[in-house]
């Protein structure tokens, strides 16, 4: 992390690198039969635990904890799936094919089809292709993730100015980083920001997919995951 901090040269970006959460792993039930329900159960359990990680991570995004509790909730309720998808996409970048939900839970096209998540897989793959072409680095990933949180367009914001300040702070950090680290491409920050609509579209599709899983009722869902799916 120290090398990365020195490299980024921007205080906010360095801070975001430092507060990047540790990896979490899938915990499949070894006694469960190998089928689509087992895969989805393992995935939903992983997402539930990742949600706790995301909520704790958000507290360390500069300026977030200074917001009112209501605004913190509003941002997270709107952005959690975008944050989660961006992490999934970043982990999957080095892989030829497959979505790296965790190092021990990589879902390839066929598995996604079997569990009813093929449509979502294709959309996420489009996002992965985009970031792979851009050669998204870790500094950009952490900054975009914080921007997704701050730019969540929650309908229930009390202090619009505070959110705007947070967005401006992160935007400045990205521009500063790009100016210093990617001199050769003056349009790079724009290119990165232009990926955010696809990220939102993908997150909305993911929410729909997991709501379908809830409706089907075959997979046990944890309370926090259900709460966040209802809130979105």
């Amino acid at each position: 992390c120290c090398q990365s901090s020195k490299k980024s040269g921007n205080k906010i970006v360095s801070h975001l690198l430092l507060v990047e959460p540790d990896k979490i792993y899938a915990m499949a039930d070894p006694t469960a039969p190998e089928n689509d329900v087992k895969v989805l159960t393992t995935l939903c359990d992983l997402v539930d635990r990742e949600l706790v990680v995301i909520i704790n991570w958000a507290k360390h995004v500069p300026g977030f904890s200074a917001l009112s509790l209501g605004d913190q909730m509003g941002l997270l309720q709107s952005a959690w799936m975008e944050v989660l998808i961006l992490g999934l996409v970043f982990r999957s970048l080095p892989y030829e094919e497959g979505l790296v939900y965790a190092d021990n839970l990589v879902l390839e096209r066929e598995q996604c089809r079997v569990v009813g998540l093929l449509d979502l897989y294709c959309t996420i793959l489009q996002l992965i292709t985009k970031y792979r072409k851009l050669q998204l680095d870790k500094e950009e990933f952490v900054t975009l993730k914080a921007m997704a949180l701050a730019n969540s367009d929650s309908m229930s914001i009390e202090n619009v100015e505070a959110i705007q300040n947070l967005q401006d702070l992160l935007h400045e950090a990205l521009q500063d980083y790009e100016t210093n680290q990617h001199l050769a491409d003056p349009h790079r920050s724009g290119k990165l920001l232009m990926t955010l609509p696809l990220l939102r579209q993908t997150a909305n599709k993911a929410i729909q997919s997991f709501r379908r899983v809830v409706t089907e009722g075959k997979v046990p869902m944890h309370k926090l995951f259900l709460e966040m799916l209802e809130a979105k």
């Binding site: 500069p62 509790l69 209501g70």
Partner: peptide, 20 residues
């Protein structure tokens, strides 16, 4: 807030403000 009680509780748990 009552409807979203787990999120509410997690956010209130040892909040670590970051002042940069």
């Amino acid at each position: 807030k009552e409807k979203h009680k787990i999120l509410h509780r997690l956010l209130q748990d040892s909040t670590s403000p970051v002042d940069l």
